[in-house]
Amino acid sequence: MPIDDKDFVKLNYTGRVKETGDVFDTTYEDVAEEAGIKNDQKDYHPMVLAVGSSQLIPKLHDEIKGLEVGDKKTVEIPCEDAFGKRDPSLIKLIPMREFKRQNIKPFVGMPLTLEGNPGVVRTISGGRVRVDFNHELAGKDIVYDLEIVDTIQDDAEKIKGLIEVYYGNPNLDVEKTEIEIEDGVAKITLDKLSGFEQRTVQEVTLSKFRVARETYENIEGIEKVQFIDEFEKPEPEEETEEEADSEEVAPEVLPDDEE
Protein backbone atom coordinates (compact mmCIF):
# COMPACT_ATOMS: atom_id res chain seq x y z
CA MET A 1 0.00 0.00 0.00
CA PRO A 2 1.51 3.37 -1.02
CA ILE A 3 2.68 5.60 1.83
CA ASP A 4 0.77 8.84 2.37
CA ASP A 5 0.60 11.81 4.78
CA LYS A 6 0.41 10.94 8.50
CA ASP A 7 1.50 7.35 7.90
CA PHE A 8 4.20 6.15 10.31
CA VAL A 9 7.13 4.34 8.74
CA LYS A 10 10.42 2.84 9.83
CA LEU A 11 13.04 4.42 7.62
CA ASN A 12 16.71 3.75 7.00
CA TYR A 13 18.68 6.51 5.34
CA THR A 14 22.12 7.91 4.62
CA GLY A 15 22.63 11.59 3.83
CA ARG A 16 25.66 12.70 1.80
CA VAL A 17 26.99 15.97 0.40
CA LYS A 18 26.62 15.62 -3.37
CA GLU A 19 29.87 17.40 -4.31
CA THR A 20 32.19 15.51 -1.95
CA GLY A 21 30.26 12.34 -1.05
CA ASP A 22 30.85 13.06 2.65
CA VAL A 23 28.28 11.36 4.91
CA PHE A 24 26.70 13.77 7.42
CA ASP A 25 23.92 11.56 8.83
CA THR A 26 22.87 7.91 8.72
CA THR A 27 20.87 5.24 10.52
CA TYR A 28 23.53 2.60 9.80
CA GLU A 29 26.22 2.13 12.47
CA ASP A 30 28.81 0.70 10.07
CA VAL A 31 28.33 3.60 7.64
CA ALA A 32 28.70 6.13 10.48
CA GLU A 33 31.85 4.42 11.74
CA GLU A 34 33.41 4.31 8.27
CA ALA A 35 32.59 8.00 7.74
CA GLY A 36 34.10 8.95 11.11
CA ILE A 37 30.84 10.41 12.45
CA LYS A 38 29.78 7.60 14.79
CA ASN A 39 28.15 8.83 17.99
CA ASP A 40 28.52 6.42 20.91
CA GLN A 41 25.45 7.98 22.55
CA LYS A 42 23.23 7.07 19.58
CA ASP A 43 21.45 3.80 18.84
CA TYR A 44 21.68 3.06 15.14
CA HIS A 45 18.48 1.53 13.77
CA PRO A 46 15.61 2.57 11.46
CA MET A 47 14.03 5.82 12.63
CA VAL A 48 10.30 6.23 13.08
CA LEU A 49 8.95 8.93 10.77
CA ALA A 50 5.51 10.52 10.69
CA VAL A 51 5.19 11.36 7.00
CA GLY A 52 4.50 15.05 6.49
CA SER A 53 5.76 16.06 9.94
CA SER A 54 8.67 18.37 10.74
CA GLN A 55 11.11 15.50 11.37
CA LEU A 56 12.86 15.78 8.00
CA ILE A 57 13.17 18.46 5.33
CA PRO A 58 9.88 18.80 3.36
CA LYS A 59 11.35 17.61 0.06
CA LEU A 60 12.15 14.21 1.58
CA HIS A 61 8.56 13.72 2.70
CA ASP A 62 7.42 14.40 -0.86
CA GLU A 63 9.82 11.73 -2.12
CA ILE A 64 8.72 9.17 0.47
CA LYS A 65 5.01 9.48 -0.32
CA GLY A 66 3.98 6.85 -2.83
CA LEU A 67 6.71 4.37 -1.82
CA GLU A 68 5.93 1.00 -0.27
CA VAL A 69 7.58 -1.25 2.33
CA GLY A 70 10.81 -2.64 0.90
CA ASP A 71 11.30 0.18 -1.60
CA LYS A 72 14.69 1.86 -1.91
CA LYS A 73 15.28 5.24 -3.51
CA THR A 74 18.11 7.72 -4.03
CA VAL A 75 17.04 11.36 -3.91
CA GLU A 76 19.05 14.43 -4.96
CA ILE A 77 18.01 17.68 -3.28
CA PRO A 78 19.35 21.10 -4.32
CA CYS A 79 20.51 23.38 -1.51
CA GLU A 80 17.50 25.70 -1.75
CA ASP A 81 15.20 22.72 -0.97
CA ALA A 82 17.55 21.29 1.66
CA PHE A 83 19.24 23.55 4.22
CA GLY A 84 19.05 26.75 2.20
CA LYS A 85 21.58 28.88 0.38
CA ARG A 86 24.39 30.53 2.30
CA ASP A 87 23.37 33.92 3.64
CA PRO A 88 26.23 36.44 3.94
CA SER A 89 24.24 38.41 6.51
CA LEU A 90 24.56 35.47 8.91
CA ILE A 91 28.35 35.87 9.06
CA LYS A 92 29.20 38.20 11.95
CA LEU A 93 32.41 39.92 13.07
CA ILE A 94 32.64 39.94 16.86
CA PRO A 95 35.34 41.94 18.70
CA MET A 96 37.83 39.78 20.58
CA ARG A 97 37.21 41.86 23.71
CA GLU A 98 33.71 40.35 23.94
CA PHE A 99 35.26 36.90 24.28
CA LYS A 100 37.88 38.11 26.76
CA ARG A 101 35.16 39.75 28.82
CA GLN A 102 33.53 36.31 29.21
CA ASN A 103 36.88 34.59 29.75
CA ILE A 104 36.54 32.63 26.49
CA LYS A 105 39.49 31.86 24.24
CA PRO A 106 38.06 31.31 20.74
CA PHE A 107 39.66 29.05 18.13
CA VAL A 108 38.89 28.26 14.50
CA GLY A 109 36.15 25.62 14.32
CA MET A 110 34.85 26.42 17.80
CA PRO A 111 31.06 26.00 18.06
CA LEU A 112 29.18 28.67 19.99
CA THR A 113 25.71 30.05 20.51
CA LEU A 114 24.73 33.71 20.36
CA GLU A 115 21.21 34.72 21.38
CA GLY A 116 20.04 31.16 20.80
CA ASN A 117 21.63 30.89 17.35
CA PRO A 118 24.35 28.23 16.84
CA GLY A 119 27.46 29.28 14.95
CA VAL A 120 31.05 28.31 14.19
CA VAL A 121 34.22 30.39 14.43
CA ARG A 122 35.73 30.63 10.93
CA THR A 123 38.66 33.04 11.30
CA ILE A 124 40.44 35.10 13.98
CA SER A 125 42.31 38.15 12.76
CA GLY A 126 43.05 41.73 13.76
CA GLY A 127 41.24 41.52 17.08
CA ARG A 128 38.05 40.32 15.44
CA VAL A 129 36.43 36.89 15.34
CA ARG A 130 34.47 35.88 12.24
CA VAL A 131 31.52 33.67 13.22
CA ASP A 132 29.32 31.88 10.68
CA PHE A 133 25.70 31.35 11.77
CA ASN A 134 24.65 29.57 8.56
CA HIS A 135 23.66 25.91 8.86
CA GLU A 136 26.73 23.74 8.30
CA LEU A 137 25.10 22.28 5.16
CA ALA A 138 23.80 25.60 3.81
CA GLY A 139 24.68 26.11 0.15
CA LYS A 140 25.29 22.39 -0.44
CA ASP A 141 23.30 20.04 -2.65
CA ILE A 142 22.69 16.76 -0.85
CA VAL A 143 21.83 13.16 -1.67
CA TYR A 144 19.77 10.77 0.44
CA ASP A 145 19.65 6.99 0.08
CA LEU A 146 16.28 5.87 1.48
CA GLU A 147 14.84 2.47 2.41
CA ILE A 148 11.31 1.90 3.70
CA VAL A 149 11.73 -0.89 6.27
CA ASP A 150 8.19 -1.16 7.64
CA THR A 151 5.03 0.72 8.58
CA ILE A 152 3.59 1.10 12.10
CA GLN A 153 -0.12 0.67 12.81
CA ASP A 154 -0.22 0.55 16.62
CA ASP A 155 -0.63 4.03 18.12
CA ALA A 156 1.41 3.27 21.25
CA GLU A 157 4.33 2.10 19.09
CA LYS A 158 4.03 5.27 17.03
CA ILE A 159 4.40 7.37 20.18
CA LYS A 160 7.39 5.34 21.34
CA GLY A 161 9.02 6.06 18.00
CA LEU A 162 8.42 9.78 18.42
CA ILE A 163 9.93 9.64 21.93
CA GLU A 164 13.09 8.08 20.48
CA VAL A 165 13.34 10.83 17.87
CA TYR A 166 12.46 13.87 19.96
CA TYR A 167 13.12 13.16 23.63
CA GLY A 168 16.88 13.03 23.34
CA ASN A 169 17.86 11.05 26.46
CA PRO A 170 20.29 8.27 25.46
CA ASN A 171 19.78 6.46 28.80
CA LEU A 172 16.01 6.21 28.42
CA ASP A 173 14.68 2.70 27.65
CA VAL A 174 11.66 3.23 25.41
CA GLU A 175 10.50 -0.34 26.00
CA LYS A 176 10.04 0.51 29.69
CA THR A 177 7.85 3.48 28.79
CA GLU A 178 4.15 2.90 29.46
CA ILE A 179 1.54 4.43 27.16
CA GLU A 180 -2.21 4.38 27.77
CA ILE A 181 -4.62 5.84 25.23
CA GLU A 182 -8.21 6.45 26.25
CA ASP A 183 -10.92 8.95 25.25
CA GLY A 184 -8.55 10.96 23.05
CA VAL A 185 -5.86 11.26 25.75
CA ALA A 186 -2.43 9.66 25.51
CA LYS A 187 -0.91 9.17 28.96
CA ILE A 188 2.85 8.62 28.89
CA THR A 189 4.81 7.30 31.86
CA LEU A 190 8.46 7.44 30.88
CA ASP A 191 11.15 4.99 31.90
CA LYS A 192 12.29 5.93 35.41
CA LEU A 193 15.79 6.81 34.15
CA SER A 194 14.24 9.87 32.53
CA GLY A 195 14.00 11.42 35.99
CA PHE A 196 17.79 11.57 36.31
CA GLU A 197 18.71 13.71 33.31
CA GLN A 198 21.61 16.09 33.00
CA ARG A 199 19.47 18.65 31.20
CA THR A 200 17.69 21.83 32.18
CA VAL A 201 13.99 21.92 32.92
CA GLN A 202 13.53 24.04 29.79
CA GLU A 203 15.23 21.43 27.58
CA VAL A 204 13.17 18.58 29.00
CA THR A 205 9.94 20.57 28.64
CA LEU A 206 10.77 21.38 25.00
CA SER A 207 11.41 17.69 24.29
CA LYS A 208 8.07 16.72 25.79
CA PHE A 209 6.32 19.45 23.80
CA ARG A 210 7.81 18.14 20.55
CA VAL A 211 6.64 14.60 21.30
CA ALA A 212 3.18 15.86 22.23
CA ARG A 213 2.82 18.08 19.15
CA GLU A 214 3.84 15.36 16.69
CA THR A 215 1.51 12.94 18.49
CA TYR A 216 -1.71 14.94 18.33
CA GLU A 217 -0.94 16.35 14.89
CA ASN A 218 -0.25 12.98 13.28
CA ILE A 219 -2.23 10.32 15.18
CA GLU A 220 -5.93 10.46 14.52
CA GLY A 221 -8.16 10.51 17.58
CA ILE A 222 -5.56 11.84 20.03
CA GLU A 223 -6.35 15.36 21.23
CA LYS A 224 -4.26 15.58 24.40
CA VAL A 225 -0.95 14.21 25.65
CA GLN A 226 -0.07 13.85 29.33
CA PHE A 227 3.36 13.02 30.76
CA ILE A 228 3.10 11.34 34.15
CA ASP A 229 5.90 11.37 36.72
CA GLU A 230 5.43 8.32 38.86
CA PHE A 231 7.44 7.33 41.94
CA GLU A 232 6.53 4.12 43.74
CA LYS A 233 7.53 3.09 47.24
CA PRO A 234 9.55 -0.13 47.00
CA GLU A 235 8.19 -3.25 48.69
CA PRO A 236 10.14 -4.31 51.82
CA GLU A 237 12.36 -7.31 51.23
CA GLU A 238 11.04 -10.50 52.79
CA GLU A 239 13.35 -12.39 55.11
CA THR A 240 14.20 -15.85 53.80
CA GLU A 241 14.14 -18.97 55.99
CA GLU A 242 17.91 -19.35 55.64
CA GLU A 243 18.44 -15.79 56.87
CA ALA A 244 16.12 -16.41 59.81
CA ASP A 245 17.84 -19.66 60.77
CA SER A 246 21.25 -18.03 60.60
CA GLU A 247 20.32 -15.46 63.23
CA GLU A 248 21.39 -16.66 66.68
CA VAL A 249 20.04 -15.34 69.94
CA ALA A 250 22.86 -14.13 72.15
CA PRO A 251 22.89 -15.93 75.53
CA GLU A 252 22.15 -13.86 78.61
CA VAL A 253 25.30 -13.26 80.62
CA LEU A 254 24.82 -12.65 84.34
CA PRO A 255 27.28 -10.89 86.68
CA ASP A 256 29.30 -13.22 88.95
CA ASP A 257 27.34 -12.21 92.06
CA GLU A 258 24.04 -13.29 90.49
CA GLU A 259 25.14 -16.79 89.46
Rank of each mutant, 00 (worst) to 15 (best):
K59Q: 15
R210L: 11
T27H: 10
E248H: 06
I228R: 14
I181R: 03
F8K: 01
D22G: 08
E241H: 11
A50E: 04
E68S: 13
T200W: 00
D257R: 11
N117H: 14
P234G: 06
Y216I: 10
K65Q: 05
S54T: 09
I64Q: 09
Q55N: 03
K59S: 14
D87K: 09
K42H: 13
V108F: 04
D191H: 02
M1D: 10
E235K: 13
K10R: 15
P2T: 03
A50Q: 05
F83N: 12
A156S: 15
G139K: 02
N218D: 10
S125V: 07
Q102D: 13
K65P: 00
D71L: 08
I179A: 02
G21F: 04
H61L: 08
D132A: 06
K42N: 11
P78K: 11
D132R: 04
V143G: 00
M110S: 06
Q41C: 07
R122P: 00
T26M: 10
G221E: 08
Y144P: 00
E157N: 14
L60F: 09
K38P: 01
K73A: 08
N103A: 12
D150N: 15
C79P: 01
Q102Y: 11
T113C: 08
E259A: 12
R16Q: 12
S53M: 05
